[in-house]
C-alpha cells in the first residue's frame, strides 16, 4: 500500500519536472527564435559552413592553449606549494621570505589577470634586458603562472592548516625533524584534501590561457578573432567556446566526483 503510494508520488514528481522543463525551454527557444535579429545571428554565429572552414585552424590554436595550460599548471603547482610552505614556517631566519610571500600573494591576487598579462608581456619586453625571454608565449605563460601561483598557494595553505596539530606532535614525538614531518606527514594529507579546490583553479587557468591572445601568439581565440574580424562571422568564436567546454566540463565533473568522495570519507571514521 505505502510502497504503491510512494511510487505514485515519485511518478507524479517526475512528470511535473518533465512538463516544467519542456515549458521553460520551449518558451526560451520561442523567445530567441522569434527575435527580429535571429536570422542574422544564426548566420554569423552558427553557420555550419563557416564552422567547417575555420575549425582546423582554431583546433590547431587550441592545441597551443592546451600545451601552455599544462606547462603553466605544472609550474603553478610547484611555486604555489613552495610559497605555502614558506608561509607556514616559523623559523625567524626565514622571516624576509615569509614577508615576500605574503606581499606576493596579496599583489598577485589583487591585480586582474589580464593586467598582469599586459604588464609582464609588454613591460618585460620593453626592458630589453639581455637574458630575459622575449617570446610572448613565455611572457604570457609567466604572467599566468604568477597570478595562479598566488591562488594555489592559498589553497595549499588552507590544506596545511586543516591538518590537525596532533599530527605534527605525533611526527615530532617519533624523532622526525620539522621538515621531515611536513614532507612525510603534513603535506601529503594537505594535498589530498585540497585536490577538489585545486582542480577548480585548474579550470579557471585553462580558460584564462586565452588572455595571452593579447600578446599575439596564434592561439585559438586569437585565430578565431582574426577570422571573425576579416569575414564578419562569429562562428569561429563559438567553435572556440565549444572546444573550451570539451575540456572544462569533464574537469568540472571530476571535481564534483572528488568532492563527493572526500565528503564521504570525512563522514566515515578518519583517525587523526
Amino acid at each position: 500500500m505505502r510502497a504503491a503510494a510512494r511510487r505514485r508520488r515519485a511518478q507524479r514528481r517526475t512528470a511535473v519536472a518533465a512538463v516544467s522543463t519542456l515549458v521553460v525551454l520551449g518558451a526560451l527557444a520561442a523567445w530567441i527564435l522569434t527575435a527580429p535579429g535571429w536570422p542574422d545571428v544564426r548566420d554569423t554565429f552558427f553557420s555550419v559552413h563557416d564552422f567547417r572552414a575555420s575549425f582546423p585552424d582554431v583546433l590547431r590554436g587550441f592545441w597551443l592553449d592546451v600545451k601552455l595550460f599544462v606547462i603553466v599548471e605544472a609550474i603553478v603547482l610547484v611555486i604555489g606549494l613552495s610559497i605555502a610552505l614558506v608561509r607556514t614556517t616559523r623559523t625567524p631566519a626565514l622571516f624576509p621570505f615569509r614577508a615576500i610571500a605574503v606581499v606576493f600573494c596579496d599583489v598577485m591576487r589583487g591585480v586582474p589577470t589580464i593586467l598582469l598579462v599586459y604588464l609582464v608581456g609588454f613591460g618585460v619586453l620593453a626592458l630589453s634586458l639581455k637574458g630575459l625571454p622575449t617570446d610572448p608565449l613565455v611572457l604570457g605563460g609567466a604572467a599566468l603562472a604568477l597570478s595562479y601561483s598566488a591562488y594555489v598557494a592559498e589553497v595549499y595553505r588552507s590544506g596545511i592548516d586543516s591538518v590537525h596539530p596532533t599530527q605534527m606532535a605525533g611526527a615530532l614525538a617519533l624523532g622526525l625533524t620539522r621538515v621531515q614531518a611536513m614532507r612525510h606527514v603534513i603535506v601529503p594529507q594537505a594535498v589530498r584534501r585540497v585536490i577538489p579546490p585545486l582542480l577548480n583553479d585548474f579550470i579557471a587557468l585553462q580558460k584564462d590561457v586565452a588572455l595571452i591572445s593579447i600578446l599575439g601568439p596564434a592561439e585559438a581565440f586569437r585565430i578565431a578573432q582574426i577570422d571573425a574580424a576579416s569575414n564578419f562571422v562569429y562562428t569561429p568564436l563559438v567553435s572556440v567556446a565549444l572546444l573550451y567546454l570539451c575540456v572544462t566540463i569533464p574537469l568540472a565533473r571530476l571535481v564534483d566526483h572528488l568532492q563527493a568522495r572526500s565528503r564521504r570519507s570525512r563522514g566515515g571514521a578518519v583517525a587523526l
Binding site: 596532533t166 599530527q167 624523532g175 578518519v270 583517525a271 587523526l272
Partner: peptide, 18 residues
Amino acid sequence: IEVRRRLGMVFQAFNLFP
C-alpha cells in the same frame, strides 16, 4: 630531535598517520 629519538610517546588520540 635527538632527545625525542630516544623517547617513545603514545597519545590519547593515537595520532596515527591516516
